[in-house]
Design a protein around this nucleic acid. Sequence first.
DNA 1: CTGAAAGCGCTTACAG
DNA 2: CTGAAAGCGCTTACAG
Lengths: 345, 345
Amino acid sequence: MAKVTLKEVAAACGVSRATVSLVLQDSHRVSEGTKERVRVAMREMGYVYDRRAANLRSKRSMTVALVATDVRNPYFAELTMAIEAALYEQGYALLLGYSRDDVEHQERLLEAMIEHRVDGLLLVPSYETTGEMLQRTLGASGTPHVLVTRHVQRYDADYVGVDNVRAAELIGEHLLAEGYRRIAFLGGPAQSTARIERRRGLIEALERWEVAYDPAMSIATTADREGGVGAVEALFAADLRPDAVVCYSDVVAFGAMAALRGAGLKPGVDIAVASFDDLPAAAQQQPTLTSVASYPNRTGAEAADLLRRRMDDPDLPPRTVLLAPELHVRQSTVDPVARHEGGRL
Amino acid sequence: MAKVTLKEVAAACGVSRATVSLVLQDSHRVSEGTKERVRVAMREMGYVYDRRAANLRSKRSMTVALVATDVRNPYFAELTMAIEAALYEQGYALLLGYSRDDVEHQERLLEAMIEHRVDGLLLVPSYETTGEMLQRTLGASGTPHVLVTRHVQRYDADYVGVDNVRAAELIGEHLLAEGYRRIAFLGGPAQSTARIERRRGLIEALERWEVAYDPAMSIATTADREGGVGAVEALFAADLRPDAVVCYSDVVAFGAMAALRGAGLKPGVDIAVASFDDLPAAAQQQPTLTSVASYPNRTGAEAADLLRRRMDDPDLPPRTVLLAPELHVRQSTVDPVARHEGGRL
DNA sequence: CTGAAAGCGCTTACAG
DNA sequence: CTGAAAGCGCTTACAG
């Protein structure tokens, strides 16, 4: 089929290209009669709108980029679904790139997105991202953008994430109330702002209860299952015996629980386990896993919303949206036996 | 910053826009000296390539679309990562859309991708997709495309997936050799080509062993964890007692195992469980889960490769690439006790 | 090796 | 309510 453009449609209808363009936009400046006539012709002729041309002329692209780290992490899968849904609603197409937590790769992705002239960009920054780096790319290009889930030190931009400090406080308070005293913090990359904040929240809870915190019981690792396994091994190698472990994320906790079992300890009975994310899989563990919900779907929807405002008005002052975390207590931190005996102290 | 275009760069260098354009493409028709001079100017002036304009003129878009169903399924997450990596390598940006297995949503996504004039499209068709529907959208537009993981009846197009019939035969042969005889097939949508093929492979293995197949022990469900739970419940409600269950996918198997435990049965001891996908999580179950690897990463890479060929030559005859499955036997189908007693018959 | 000209398919003021 | 004209920022023959 010969491709049919606005010009052909216009000729067939005996109107100008401008008029056809206005019909496409459903402008009130065109009469209903003409609109109908043009639409019928478009359908009959098999006209397909060419957004590339429209984009060029109108200085938009109707695309938004999401640059994240890795979608195999269920948290990011959920986040991606929420973002895709919100953008689709608004008529935007989603350009996707995964940095795999590699800053150089991330930089090339950002450059590509900018060349494609995305109207906006959502970024889950990889761990070693610096503010200067974002300034040089996103900042210089003037692309409206929002940081999601992780923020970057000394880089002032819109940000949506869960309140990590508060989340860790919730876990800490709960464990302390249950009678646990030797609490370790396991997993997550040392540079991660989420890790730093969660660790801080935990320490604040401990201080409030006047319980000592042993810095040796904080072990940084990769943010995956293997990280959890490794952290537990490191703990035991150093002869440290916590009565509870707080993990960087559910995925890390899954690894930690497996490693604990491997060492002959029963999670939830011999040692408490709690973590962050509250993935659906947390409630399906044995024992079920206590976790703080971080709402990837709400985060994604909020991010899309923030980006829309930013695109509408690039001069708005940067906003931070912190979602309130919610603790879901499950078997892994509530040992019925210990309870019966009146606590473990 | 005032945006700088080719025109400004050309003026600053005292050359034509055509020359600058050629420098951008690293054409051999421009001298090294000029190239260097132009590149320096571009850097100094902060020039950023505008792909939208290039796209329009060159009749390409340097984007490829992936329309899949849902990335929360770990199989699709892995697939997405592989596809993103391959396309990135080739210089393409990825436009992403999720149909959530809703055909109408899928149709709107396809239309949007076509309007964006993607150079090619990878489709994991939603379950109720018809050939006529794809013909009307993708076919009519002439967009090069490849079906991934699922194919569509009576629609002739490039296709990459695992050999489902063979995969099910492998599982069937293994279970039969282990002495299991009352084998159920659980989960997966009735319309799914993957389900139909896997079921067929299983039946073929049973016939070869001259073991009766009970059609009542084939239960279709949604392709998620809840599907697995529901299928087991349906089985018991109908008073059916298989000695082995073959699940539509690992995710379904996870649900089935939970439901079996809920009914007081030990997977791998009281009843064998096997499935398809061989997700990393399969090896992390208790008991570890026997599963047939379906290689989402190889599938993704192969799909990107097939699409590239198709984009290079749209007139190629459609090709089908079937990946050879591989059975990974684990604890869930090999009961050491039963073995000791010389089989379960 | 480089330049002048045309054009990709739209939208956007502007004029009537 | 509709049209004529200009132009978005590139690339592509073509000519020299």
